[in-house]
Design a protein around this nucleic acid. Structure first.
Lengths: 161, 161
DNA sequence: CAGTATCCGGTGCGATACTG
DNA sequence: CAGTATCGCACCGGATACTG
């Protein structure tokens, strides 16, 4: 029997490598060049080069040439539209770390809504406008055709603990 | 200069290993025993055993004994409260995969609100009640004391050579 | 069933060095 | 600055065997 290939697994093939999400964190923060990214993440040069190549190939980053007057052509890494949509992934990871792995005097980074200044967080919302608790209580996973016999076969997913 | 240790990095030390999030996906779906998890994820036995141990040690999973009548004691893995709060991480990953890596005829799994039946998704919301686009447009990261000089400096290579 | 133990081959990773 | 080249090692995955 083949393992279950879901969207989680597929996404992890793009951003699941050891340094990928930390690289993306930096690009989201506006750090777009090789060495600054390297210093902020701690990734080895060769690994970083490979990650950047992979993320570009996956359509998450875009490698752009630029030239400062008097210097040679260099490259910057920008998020593509698809890359920008990874923001909720990073936000969710950060939120969990803030809550459960806080170091001394954290958190070092806050997310605020540019329009109103309010603190921004990741939430589970339904199309009727309800907001679910982060624990996913009240969330019901519904398998669809083709994966039926393997999905929520065992016990009640959302209710129990 | 030390790399930036943020909550993203810290969280990835808990769930960033290759199989961790897929294991958690299964537990969220109600698959709680060793072999079913192994079959659904495809992780090798030894690796799965280690991941489960790590996740228990990290306080994300709870290993519980249970005994079916007439058999010996066995173990099941349940989410702790902290583990349940990883739901937004999995949801965000799944959502991105659904949108950008859809296989033929996906998605195989839907999330619905048990109360109203509405489809559930991850969203960026601010405390004033606004919902931001998934791209994070309008999201302003605000560095806090202690990480000041490195945070949202953009790409100007201000300092040393 | 639920693991642990061992071997083995591949590769991701880290450190260092080199280049345009 | 932005990488490439190289090397050794640790870890990962696959297979197999053993245990309570």
């Amino acid at each position: 029997m083949p393992p279950r290939i879901c969207s989680v697994a597929r996404t992890l093939e793009v951003v699941g490598e050891r340094w990928s999400l930390l690289v993306l964190r930096e690009v989201f923060l506006g750090v777009r060049r090789f060495d600054p990214i390297r210093e902020a993440t701690g990734a080895p040069r060769a690994v970083l080069a490979e990650r950047l190549r992979d993320l570009v190939a996956a359509g998450v980053l875009d490698r752009r040439e630029y030239r400062e007057p008097g210097t040679r052509v260099r490259h910057e890494y920008h998020l593509t539209p698809a890359g920008r949509e990874l923001q909720p992934v990073l936000t969710a990871l950060m939120q969990w770390g803030d809550r459960h792995l806080a170091g001394p005097g954290q958190p070092p980074l806050e997310l605020r809504h540019a329009d109103c200044g309010g603190r921004v967080r990741t939430a589970l919302v339904c199309e009727e406008g309800h907001t679910l608790p982060d624990t996913g209580t009240g969330l019901r996973p519904v398998p669809r055709a083709g994966d039926r016999d393997r999905a929520t076969r065992d016990s009640a997913p959302a209710g129990g603990s």
